[in-house]
Deep mutational scan, measured.
Amino acid sequence: NLYFQGLKYMVPGARVTRGLDWKWRDQDGSPQGEGTVTGELHNGWIDVTWDAGGSNSYRMGAEGKFDLKLAP
């Protein structure tokens, strides 16, 4: 699974964008943008601060869902 392989790169400072299971509307800005991981992966959740200004926790394994992917 590509998403599980990418988890080791989901570290503080990593750049991310919305992924396969995104369901959080425009939390990442409008139009959709990139963000920066600000915390360690914990119980399948990870913290992100978006360039647009907001921050929140997103699923990276929790509930079998992956809200994020590494930015290109």
Rank of each mutant, 00 (worst) to 15 (best):
N1F: 10
N1S: 12
L2T: 14
L2Y: 11
L2M: 13
L2I: 14
L2D: 15
L2A: 13
L2N: 15
Y3E: 15
Y3D: 15
F4N: 12
F4D: 14
Q5Y: 11
Q5L: 11
G6P: 10
G6A: 14
G6E: 15
G6L: 15
G6M: 15
L7Q: 10
L7C: 14
L7A: 10
K8R: 10
K8T: 11
K8M: 13
Y9V: 08
Y9W: 13
Y9I: 08
Y9H: 12
M10T: 04
M10N: 01
M10Y: 14
P12K: 12
G13R: 04
G13N: 05
R15H: 03
R15A: 01
R15T: 02
V16H: 00
V16L: 01
T17S: 10
T17K: 10
T17G: 07
T17H: 08
R18G: 03
R18E: 01
R18K: 06
R18V: 08
G19R: 06
G19F: 06
G19W: 05
G19E: 03
L20M: 14
D21L: 03
D21E: 03
W22K: 03
W22T: 03
W22M: 05
K23H: 07
K23G: 07
K23D: 11
K23C: 15
W24R: 03
W24E: 07
W24V: 05
R25C: 15
R25L: 15
D26Q: 09
D26Y: 07
D26V: 06
D26C: 11
Q27C: 07
D28W: 04
G29S: 06
G29P: 05
G29W: 05
G29K: 04
S30A: 11
G33Y: 05
G33R: 08
G33C: 10
G33A: 08
E34W: 14
G35C: 01
T36S: 07
T36K: 04
T38V: 13
T38Y: 07
G39F: 05
E40W: 14
E40K: 12
E40M: 12
E40G: 12
E40N: 12
L41D: 03
L41K: 05
L41W: 11
L41N: 07
H42E: 10
N43K: 10
G44I: 03
I46C: 04
I46S: 01
D47M: 14
D47N: 13
D47E: 15
V48A: 00
V48G: 00
W50T: 00
D51P: 00
D51K: 05
D51S: 03
D51N: 05
A52Q: 10
A52Y: 13
G53E: 01
N56E: 07
N56K: 07
S57F: 10
S57Y: 10
Y58G: 01
R59K: 01
R59I: 04
M60T: 01
M60N: 03
M60D: 00
M60Y: 10
G61P: 01
G61D: 01
A62M: 05
A62K: 04
A62D: 04
A62E: 03
E63N: 10
E63F: 11
G64V: 05
G64F: 07
G64Q: 07
K65Y: 07
K65T: 03
D67T: 04
L68V: 07
K69I: 10
K69H: 09
L70G: 04
L70C: 11
A71Y: 08
A71F: 07
A71V: 14
P72M: 12
P72Q: 13
